[in-house]
Design a protein around this nucleic acid. Structure first.
Length: 419
RNA sequence: GGGGGAGUGUCCCGAGCGGCAAAGGGGGCGGACUGUAAAUCCGCUGGCUACGCCUUCGUAGGUUCGAGUCCUACCUCCCCCA
């Protein structure tokens, strides 16, 4: 990447300044294309899970910026390629998903996407397409003759995704070996169908993307471009988007908005600036101001990060509600109505629901054994009072304004709402 | 085809003379300290109707009062010879 390159398009300026760019095959080329107002770009998404999590957020944001700056984004659902499985960055082969599971996952992902990007037929409205559309219709022999002839096995063997498996003597099935060919073919197909000239993705996708570029050249498409974003880790090196409780999902039914807000609120000091640039749309000078806050003041920046990021995924109203719930809970020590909650039959309380069972029910602990351990460690609280007796039961008297507040540690809270 | 080695607590790595719910890390969770941060220190890290019971060491059998540990077969992976 040339250091002194000065982009003229708003699209590239934004991506470069906000830290989205890791590698690009041809910045000038992409810039010119973006300038012309004809840039169509795509990112492919696996259909391996029923939703998307924070790990995909960088990619989603790139498509969002593309749309905001006058380009047309394409979200490519890997309905076809997911049937094959990408070996990139994986030590072992992935389980092959059933077609029904892939379909269901696709629907979940689509609903998340629509929060971030506007879909439709207009020029800058995004398209969502599924590569199963063309991949499953391919005839094997035809594909080999038309496309396979352009792939050099010698080169494929040298690709990191393949090389790694071979070096470690790990199985790489022929099925997976074909993945990059299919992804390469996707790019060409999207170019033919929609004039898509740029594929973006995480840095681990560089090899796959470049394969598409080469294939395009050999098959006579116009010049294609590649752009990857850095692989995101937190300042302390952990993979982005995974927490103890699991992935940080972008949809509410898999992760309560309160928890999503908390995820951002609890980021490390060193990450605030970077995250503000990548995951919010605050002007850069504001970001600079916020990240320069020192000491405890950086907490203000974290709150803004949390609310801004949450607004995008769940809407402003829900984000403000989460912010308010956090303020009440952490700053005032008061009861916040909008904490994550589960309904519980009043009769169960009357009957004397044991604390152990209650915490399991609330999902704060995985088993009664864990609940016992947490009690020993002083980690469980009912209405902010530490539980010391594992045989205690919840009672009518614990109910305040219709709820009982259960807490695990300082940060995780669930309200039992009596019904 | 022949010879040798490996598979351990379902997050990962990794010890394990026949008495083992199984050493030690990492990670994670909880506590203390803080700023809902980082660093540090301490505790916990199979399940249950819980001073007891049940299920765990690639799979299936066997020897034994008793098996992760010994024997047999099978599966998977690695190394050497062909």
């Amino acid at each position: 990447m040339s250091e002194d390159f000065r982009p003229r398009s708003e699209f590239l300026q934004t991506l470069l300044l906000r830290g989205y760019v890791h590698q690009c095959s041809d910045l000038e080329g992409v810039d010119a294309k973006a300038q012309s107002g004809e840039l169509v770009a795509y990112i492919g998404f696996d259909c391996t899970a029923p939703s998307l999590h924070v790990g995909s957020l960088v990619q989603i944001m790139m498509l969002r910026w593309l749309q905001k700056t006058g380009g047309k984004p394409i979200a490519l659902m890997g309905g076809g390629t997911t049937q094959v499985g990408d070996p990139s960055g994986k030590d072992e082969s992935r389980k092959i998903l059933s077609l029904e599971a892939i379909e269901a996952n696709k629907a979940g992902i689509a609903s998340v996407f629509s929060k971030f990007i506007a879909f439709g037929e207009e020029k800058t409205e995004a398209l969502m397409v599924d590569n199963a559309e063309w991949l499953t219709a391919l005839k094997y022999v035809d594909f080999l003759r038309d496309v396979g002839r352009h792939f050099s096995v010698n080169r494929m063997m040298a690709m990191d995704s393949v090389k790694l498996r071979l070096e470690r003597d790990q199985e790489l099935s022929f099925l997976e070996f074909n993945y990059m060919c299919l992804q390469g073919y996707d790019f060409v197909e999207l170019n033919r169908r929609y004039g898509c000239a740029l594929q973006m993705g995480g840095s681990d996708q560089w090899g796959n993307i470049i394969t598409g570029l080469d294939l395009g050249r050999r098959l006579g498409t116009p010049q294609l471009y590649a752009l990857t974003s850095p692989l995101l880790t937190t300042a302390s090196g952990a993979k982005m988007g995974k927490t103890a409780q699991g992935a940080v999902w972008l949809n509410e039914d898999m992760l309560p908005v309160f928890d999503y807000w908390q995820f951002w609120r609890n980021c490390e000091d060193r990450d605030v600036g970077r995250f503000l640039k990548l995951f919010t749309e605050l002007p850069l000078d504001e970001v600079v101001r916020l990240e320069s806050l020192g000491g405890a003041e950086i907490n203000e920046a974290k709150k803004i990060l949390a609310t801004e990021a949450t607004s995008m995924a769940h809407g402003r109203a829900a984000a403000l509600l989460a912010e308010e719930a956090a303020r009440k809970t952490f700053e005032e020590g008061a009861l916040a109505e909008s904490l994550p909650s589960i309904n519980i039959d009043a009769a169960e309380i009357e009957a004397g629901l044991g604390v152990l069972a209650a915490f399991v029910k609330a999902g704060l602990v995985a088993s009664t054994s864990e609940a016992r351990r947490q009690i020993k460690g002083g980690g469980l609280r009912v209405n902010d009072a530490a539980v010391s007796d594992e045989r205690a039961a919840l009672a009518r008297g614990d109910v305040a304004s219709g709820v009982i507040k259960l807490s695990l540690g300082r940060k995780r809270h669930v309200l039992l709402k009596l019904v």
